[in-house]
Design a protein around this nucleic acid. Structure first.
Lengths: 151, 151
DNA sequence: GCTAATATCTGCACTCATGCAGATAATGTT
DNA sequence: AACATTATCTGCATGAGTGCAGATATTAGC
């Protein structure tokens, strides 16, 4: 068995990440969402319910701007405000499970085209890919923390 | 050999894509770039040099707004204007190969953490992943086209 | 050569997200 | 019970990105 071909990976991977990010931006634009809104929803989906203040910290916005952010997302039905029973000053924000229909429509092409890519894979390959995705996702989130802390 | 576990993939994959997009947004924000600027640079890197008008079509902006977009990117040194020798009305825009140092810094954490993920893979796994990235990138770009055309 | 069409650029105005500062409500502290 | 602290929200102002319409330069057609 030969050693891993990291050179080829290094050539392919940046273009791949680029494509994923571009697709994310195109999707957001298609449903009329700005980058902050997209980021906030993604953060809430990943980390789960959090307070308005925590969301402000994650996004780097002031608490005032975050209030407006939540207003926008709530108006779109992407997010829900839940009063914190333990501390009635606080507002918990959570992503609504059934995301908007328009968002679903915008993601349909990617779903279809990627399903075709995955369909050609063997069971072993799917297992390899799944494990990679499982490990890479936290790595990206750690990198996000590092970027934020560096500022 | 069992059949591919698409159920698990379906559970893991959206969170992974979410993480990639979030990281892209955080990176852009860290270097003070807006979503359009990020999208434009990514498009130029992927598709290579193109005219101002073509970039306008890709981004969905008017030609006027695109002029300002190119101004911003050029001021940052991310992009270069090249006069078209065949048609002197036209301006070709191309990504500068040596991207800004600050962008490189912002990507460093991701590089490091992902290198660790890839380091644990066998040569076969790297090959599987590389092939997937190679096939998925065009799929995302096709999806982008589909989203754009649908509007 | 003259006119029409095309590509990019510029002036102006507008929208929208955001920061800032103060207001309101709730909790903790003594 | 009074006061300080904390969390979210609101009013106002600002700035960045964008559309629109017209200007300029170049090419194509007759």
């Amino acid at each position: 068995m030969s050693s891993p071909d990291f050179a080829k990976l290094g050539a392919v991977y940046p273009r791949y990440l680029n494509a994923v990010v571009l697709h994310g931006l195109a999707t957001a634009q298609a449903v009329g969402m700005g980058p902050t809104d997209l980021y906030a929803v993604g953060t809430l989906v990943f980390h789960g319910r959090m307070t308005s203040g925590e969301l402000a910290a994650k996004t780097g916005l002031t608490t005032g701007a975050t209030t407006r952010l939540i207003d926008r997302l709530e108006a779109r039905g992407l997010v829900r405000r839940v009063p914190d029973p333990a501390d009635r000053r606080r507002v918990l924000v959570e992503a609504v499970e059934a995301q908007g229909v328009d968002l679903d429509d915008a993601l349909a092409p990617a779903r279809e085209k990627l399903a075709r890519v995955f369909a050609d894979c063997t069971a072993d390959e799917i297992a390899t890919l799944t494990e990679h995705f499982e490990r890479a996702a936290p790595a990206f989130h750690e990198a996000i923390e590092a970027i934020r802390d560096a500022r």
